[in-house]
């Protein structure tokens, strides 16, 4: 299921022009990271995918659905969106009820719900916390509950808004694992992130936004190697990319494997 965005403009009621003519196609099954300066329009953009925001002009089409013509509830069957702040998303009395809520509302069979919920809990390592109230968990685990509750909806498109924010090493690895599993299932994963090393290690395509426009769009290697252009939107290349430049590597390296190959 492709996402087609054509000349998208969005202006907030305050007059702030957050998106200024964005055109993009995100193909079914792609793993895309969106990077860029605070206030560049990253969250504003992805909130159009599930209809939380409606285009001021231009269009966002999910598969064959024009998002301005479908409700958020309807779009939820195609696009799952994990909020930046889990506290804006969680409301149930225990983790299990929270994770079941989405798939139940999508009208899946009991067997399918059980299967999806179980898988989501395993991937996020929450199986021993199903009876806990999400608000008795640490912010880190609340983030995993937010993730699980969206994954369990089995939507073809999943959006993560800054999933690694404030997460420790173990949890960042868990999130990378979830993304890899979703990829295996052929799902489209779109992730907003400021963690450029995480971005380089887990995503094939990177889109850099700046002032409501697309600054760069291409493979992780092509985009993340462009130090001067990225600086316009307050992004540094990955650590090993910067190191490779100082060592005069001919090619851009973005991860440890490539670095070790290049230094030999």
């Amino acid at each position: 299921m492709n996402i087609n965005i054509t000349d998208l403009h969005f202006t907030y009621p305050t007059g702030l022009e957050a998106l200024q003519g964005i055109s993009l196609t995100i193909h079914s099954g792609e793993q895309v990271a969106i990077v860029g300066q605070n206030g560049a329009g990253k969250t504003t953009l992805v909130r159009h995918f599930n209809g939380l925001l409606k285009a001021t002009s231009g269009s966002v089409i999910i598969g064959d659905w024009d998002t301005t013509k479908y409700s958020v509830a309807k779009l939820a069957s195609r696009v799952g969106y994990v909020f930046q702040n889990p506290d804006e998303q969680l409301f149930s009395r225990d983790v299990l009820t929270e994770v079941e809520f989405g798939p139940k509302n999508l009208g899946y069979s009991k067997e399918k719900i059980d299967e999806l919920v179980k898988q989501a809990l395993v991937w996020t390592e929450l199986t021993d916390k199903t009876e806990t109230n999400p608000y008795d968990l640490s912010p880190t685990w609340r983030k995993m509950v937010a993730l699980a509750s969206i994954i369990a909806m089995d939507t073809p498109i999943v959006i993560f808004d800054e999933p690694t924010t404030g997460q420790d090493f173990a949890n960042v690895s868990r999130i990378a694992h979830v993304i890899a599993e979703l990829k295996k299932q052929g799902k489209t994963v779109i992730t907003i992130t400021h963690d450029i090393d995480f971005c380089a290690e887990n995503f094939e395509r990177v889109i850099a936004l700046s002032n409501g426009q697309v600054l760069l769009d291409g493979t992780a290697r092509d985009v993340l190697g462009q130090e001067e252009i990225l600086a316009q939107t307050y992004v540094d290349p990955p650590q090993l990319t910067r190191l490779g430049k100082l060592l005069n590597f001919k090619e851009t390296v973005i991860n440890q494997e490539e670095f070790l190959k290049a230094i030999k």
Binding site: G36, Q37, N38, T165, G166, H194, Y234, D236
Partner: peptide, 13 residues
């Protein structure tokens, strides 16, 4: 307490 967790990379620096 994690004052830059949501900041862009150069903003963090």
């Amino acid at each position: 307490d994690e004052p830059t967790s949501q900041m862009d990379p150069i903003g963090t620096r």
